Structure formats: C-alpha cells, structure tokens
Amino acid sequence: MQRVNMIMAESPGLITICLLGYLLSAECTVFLDHENANKILNRPKRYNSGKLEEFVQGNLERECMEEKCSFEEAREVFENTERTTEFWKQYVDGDQCESNPCLNGGSCKDDINSYECWCPFGFEGKNCELDVTCNIKNGRCEQFCKNSADNKVVCSCTEGYRLAENQKSCEPAVPFPCGRVSVSQTSKLTRAETVFPDVDYVNSTEAETILDNITQSTQSFNDFTRVVGGEDAKPGQFPWQVVLNGKVDAFCGGSIVNEKWIVTAAHCVETGVKITVVAGEHNIEETEHTEQKRNVIRIIPHHNYNAAINKYNHDIALLELDEPLVLNSYVTPICIADKEYTNIFLKFGSGYVSGWGRVFHKGRSALVLQYLRVPLVDRATCLRSTKFTIYNNMFCAGFHEGGRDSCQGDSGGPHVTEVEGTSFLTGIISWGEECAMKGKYGIYTKVSRYVNWIKEKTKLT
C-alpha cells in the first residue's frame, strides 16, 4: 500500500490518463441519441435557420407576430419608411378606419389613436360632414345658397324668414311668412316636400332668348283662358290664391305678392273693366268669414305684352289694390325667389296649380277651390304637342294621358313649387288646347323671366 501511494504521488498524470480511459469505455446513459432527441424537440425550422439574422431580410411573422416588435424591426421587413409607417399605425392600436367614419364618399386613412378623412370636392370637416359648395344638395341650405369668396357655403332665406341657429334652416321672422300653410287642420295635408338634388348652379339658368321682337298675326285659340281631375282644397291650404270678379264672377285667378299687390295673367284683364279681388276665398257660393274683398285701382301688364300681336306672350300683369290686405292664416303671400332659384325650383319637376275653373272641358265651374299636382314636361315634348308657338318664356306641365289639367277660369292662378315646406311661385296658368285632352298640356308663363320686374313694381313704400 505504501508503494502504491508513492507511485500516485510521483505520477499524477498517469492516474488522470487511467481515469479518462475508464470513462470513455463506459456506456453513456444520461444523453439520448440524435434521433430520439429530435422526437422530443420537434420544432419547425425557421426561415433563416442556421444563418445569422443580421444578414437576412426581415420576416413579418418572425419579427412582429411571434413577439412584439419595434418600429426598427418592422422597418427591416418593409425596407421602406412609408410602408412601415402605414403598417405601424394599425399594428400599434388597430384600424381606426374600420367603422368607416368618413361621410359623403370620403376616404379614410388610419393613424395612431386617430384617423384622417380625405374629402371629395365640396366637403370638409373631420368626417367630411361639412358642405362647402352650393353645387351639392344646395349646400344643405333649406332655401338659398351662395358661395363666399373663400368658396364656403353661405345660406340665406327669402323675405319674412331668418336663418336658424344651425345656419342652414329657415324659420319665420314674421307672423305670416310667405308660402307657408298655417291653418292647423290643413298642415297635415301639406304636399310632399321637395329635397334639393345635386345641381350645376353655374349652368342652372337656361341660355334662352326671349323672342321679344317676333311679330306674329293673332292666333285663334280655343278655350285658351284655361282644375280638371283635381281635388277639393281645404280652407287655408292655398292662402296665396285669390279669385278675380268682373263682368262675371271667378273669371280668373291670381296670387298675393304682398298686402297691396296681386300677380295674374295679362290676358285676364281689360282696361276700363272694374275688377274686384277676393282673398281668403274657399267656396265661392258661401260666406265663410275668411274672405277679404278689395278693388283694383291700377293694372300693370308687362311692358312687352301686346294682345294685338299675341294674347299669351309675356302673359303676366300686376294688380294694385285700393287697401292693403290683412295677412292671416287664410290670406298669405306666395314666396318669389330670384331668377336663378325660381328656375331651379321649376326644374324640380312638379308643381301645384289651383283655381275655381271648370271641372271638365266646357263644363261647370268649381264651387270649392280645386288643386292638382302636375309634372313638368320637357321642352321637346311640349313643342311636338301643339302647332302653336311655345315661346321661351312659357313652359308645359300636365299629363300625356289627359284627364287632369287646369281649365277655363283658372287662368292667372299660381303654379307653385314647394321647397322644404315653403311654396314659391314658378308659373302662372296661361293657356292650353281644350282641357285635359290626351297628348295636350297646360301652358304656363315662366315666372323666372319676370321676377325682377315683379319685385321692382310691387315694392311697398
């Protein structure tokens, strides 16, 4: 034993070699072989497995989906700052455009905790909710729209109204504003409101030439003092309507412009014939205590009207009353817009006519005020429907199939267009061939041609 100890002390290297040989010859039971080890760690190889990531292109799944990435790591994937920024906006807080917040056709661009709407022409605001041009839906104005110097929408209202708090709607500024039905039992019968379409306001006024200088022999019209197929109006439903009495009662109609003036057809009036105007009328054979009678003290036909040349060209006249009318729910003026808007309103496509005229061709006159909704007829169809001249200051309205029309005794009465609950004068009943005849239409004086003249002559002093 002493000898062994001496050998170990003198030859430590020998001992180490012996131990190493023993270990190498022993069977290893701690580690699995290569094949079995792979069965336990069965993990798919990654895209760049075996390579240094710093030297390969980034992978979106590896960089940002398996674990949260930084902007720089995302930049490695896209290799483009702009594309990385677009991805980053949604990656950080989701897609803010998912709810489609942009209105009126706006395009949404996502941002971090926010979004941006790219608005089409005519709109602005956070969600493109603000109209900035009158060309689109009248700028959301209830009545009139004008573009300011910086191309912003400025709404306005006709006389007797003021802008509401929203700067879009119009509200009454006087007790009985024009064009409004205020009798409670008839307010439910107000005709369907007309909503502004998209309009090209630059070209809204037709490029028409008034044929002022045409000389033409007097034409022989049949029954051209021209509501057939209409309905009984309720008291106060058309408070701007008046009836004219002269040699015979209810020979023509008219509309209240203001307390002192009536507008009617020029062919209705004769110099030297006494005319009485009755406002607030409903049943011409009954006294309903809503009527107001006034005498006409002055007749002003349009300066281009000449019955000797043509009885229905420039067929418009103004009547001055001896005493002002007292405005109330049964006696209310009709609204008159400017030339541009009167023309736009007419193009809405349908209007209402009213009167006490004959209820059928050569038949009896109506006792109760009649009204009828009539569609506008395109000019080409209008011209083809008659052998008589249709001037540019006239328009056609009615039904091709016949059966409904204005008729004798309705002449001078109103053709009105309702705009968001307020009625505007767009025409004056003038003439036609018979009444409600198939293929024939009622012919009306186009008020847009005469609004400046009306307003100039009827100013209240």
Rank of each mutant, 00 (worst) to 15 (best):
C396G: 02
G357N: 03
A164T: 07
S187E: 09
E165D: 10
E86Y: 14
D200K: 10
F388M: 14
E159T: 07
V154H: 07
A337G: 07
G106V: 03
Q57P: 09
N283L: 11
V243R: 12
V56W: 02
C252D: 00
N166S: 04
V257Y: 02
I443W: 14
L244G: 01
F196N: 11
G246S: 08
S255F: 01
N5I: 11
V243L: 08
C157E: 00
A279D: 00
V195F: 04
V174I: 06
E129H: 07
Q167E: 05
G272E: 07
P239A: 03
V269I: 13
G122I: 02
A397C: 03
S187F: 09
K146Q: 11
E401I: 14
C155E: 00
A266R: 02
Q96K: 12
W431N: 05
K45W: 09
G398E: 13
L325K: 00
L319P: 00
S406D: 11
C170Q: 01
D410H: 15
T225G: 07
I336S: 01
V30A: 05
G58Y: 03
G253T: 10
E76N: 15
V30G: 15
G58F: 05
G253A: 13
E171S: 06
I214K: 12
R373E: 04
C28N: 00
V228R: 08
Y47I: 08
A366N: 09
I299S: 12
N452I: 05
Y450F: 05
A317V: 04
F221D: 10
C134L: 02
W453C: 01
N42Y: 06
D200Y: 11
V353Q: 11
Y444C: 03
E61P: 15
E418W: 09
V248H: 13
S406L: 14
V326R: 08
I316L: 08
A265H: 01
D405S: 12
N48F: 04
T218F: 13
G160R: 01
N343M: 05
I309V: 11
T186A: 09
K152Y: 08
R384H: 14
F123C: 04
G349Q: 11
Q167P: 03
C252N: 00
W261G: 00
S11D: 02
T458M: 03
I214T: 11
N59S: 05
C407Q: 04
G122C: 02
S11M: 14
L318I: 04
G50I: 07
V273D: 09
S220N: 08
N245H: 06
N328E: 01
V278T: 10
D223M: 11
Q219S: 03
H314A: 09
H400N: 06
G351L: 02
T225K: 10
Y444W: 01
A9D: 03
A207F: 06
D198E: 10
I309K: 14
A265D: 00
N203C: 11
F196T: 11
K126C: 11
C170G: 01
N5A: 09
V228F: 06
S365R: 14
R226G: 09
E259V: 04
P44M: 11
T209W: 08
N147G: 12
F348G: 14
R384C: 07
S169C: 05
A173S: 13
C18H: 02
V277Y: 00
L383A: 15
A308F: 05
Y391K: 10
I7H: 13
G402W: 15
E171V: 05
G125P: 03
Y22K: 01
E79N: 13
D33P: 03
L189I: 12
Y391M: 08
E124H: 13
C119V: 01
K68E: 15
R191I: 10
I262V: 10
V278R: 08
D33N: 07
N42T: 11
P333L: 00
V195H: 10
E171D: 09
C97V: 03
N452C: 06
E193M: 08
S406H: 13
T215A: 06
R294S: 01
I429M: 13
L103I: 04
T458N: 01
C252V: 00
M6W: 11
L32H: 15
Y305V: 02
V202T: 09
K387M: 14
